[in-house]
Amino acid sequence: MRNRIAAVHTVTVSLPARGDLVVRGAKGAHDRSDFLLVRVVTTDGTEGYGEVSATPLWSGEDGTSAQHFISGVLTPALLGRPLAPVGALESVMDRALAGNPFTKAGLSTALWDAYARGLGVPLATALGGPYRDEVPIKLSLSGDGADLDRTYAAAVEAGFRSFKVKVGLGVPGDLARMARARELAGAGVFLGMDANGGWSRAEARAAVRGLAEFDPAFVEQPVAPGDLAGMAALRSAGLPVIADESVFGVDDLVRLVRADAADVVSLYVGKAGGPGRAVAMGGLAAAFGVDTLIGSNGELGLGAAAQLHVACALPELSTGLPSDIIGAHYYAEDILEEPLDSDGVRVRLGSGPGLGVLPRDDIRRRFR
């Protein structure tokens, strides 16, 4: 008898970020997150876990909307269906609910986790890999003056040696912030910059020229997400351009490729709608010569584990640009029974089945 979906349970978790690592960018401060954790149970008793990592300001989704759609729309559409192939279940979710990729990604991750656990293999293996067993990572630096100094000191204490600076908050302030970050980090340390779409075209041109003296490794989302022509024009400056907010799903990626608008695309499990779709988008980007890295929406432990498995399952992943798998460091506490193997320089893939991690026992008891 085929293994089928027997139940879907959820639990909400709200956590503050570490005060000394709070990210402040063009879209505001990310000082806490409300998560919806998801558990899928199959007819043979296998459990799979996922996480909805969404913030209303950025994605238009959060734990409240995710819980409503998962319990009232997606679960009724999935119950009783065979677990495999998981891709078919993702199509069922699309037919039941428009948009909401982060919500679908949390449930999709739980389905993939259950599928891989049933096979007794890591999720990266179920997704077609692994092509690597560790991923280099970086951390965002933000704030000004003493705030920036404090964030940098905390990041270094946590083990980080590669960084990106939040800019897009006005060119004069961006110049001062990047200058101070370079002074703190020293020459030769990996230091990129992320504008979160906060610059106009004119500001972006001025900023890229002015900031060149601080040897930035890249500029991420320099202009508004829909301004692909503006991004394409900036590539002539010779600085690698990363597309983040410009690319959610496959359609966005196709438009980006056609516009020749970026050197690198920042892939998210959440933006893509799940682990399998993120890997598929990475393959499409690679086919057109666009590099990939794993970006972050401030994922917690389960989301960070999903990021890691996707990164390891991608046939092509940037080796020169670290990814943003930071969940083990960013929050005041960890929800995992055992944390990911991360030292701030890289995060390493374990050998356990599925995501290879579980929520803490006190959290597992709260699922309903």
Rank of each mutant, 00 (worst) to 15 (best):
S33H: 13
G63W: 06
G45I: 05
L57T: 15
S71Y: 02
L57G: 13
D62V: 09
R32M: 12
A66N: 08
E47N: 08
D44S: 06
R39E: 13
S59L: 12
G45E: 03
R32V: 09
T43H: 04
R32N: 13
Q67E: 15
V73E: 04
V38Y: 00
E47W: 00
T46Q: 11
I70G: 04
T55D: 13
Q67Y: 06
S65H: 07
S33L: 12
G72K: 14
W58A: 15
V40K: 00
R39P: 00
W58I: 15
T64Q: 11
G45F: 04
V52H: 07
V73D: 01
T46P: 03
S59K: 06
S65C: 15
G48C: 08
S71W: 03
G60M: 11
T55E: 14
G60E: 09
V41Q: 07
R32S: 15
W58D: 13
L36H: 06
T55G: 08
F35W: 13
T64L: 11
V40H: 01
V41K: 00
V73T: 15
P56Q: 11
Q67A: 15
D34N: 14
A54L: 11
D34H: 15
A54I: 13
V73C: 08
S65R: 11
L37W: 02
R32F: 14
F69M: 13
E61V: 12
A66G: 10
H68T: 14
T42L: 02
V52K: 03
E51I: 12
S71Q: 13
S53F: 04
V40A: 00
T64W: 13
E61H: 10
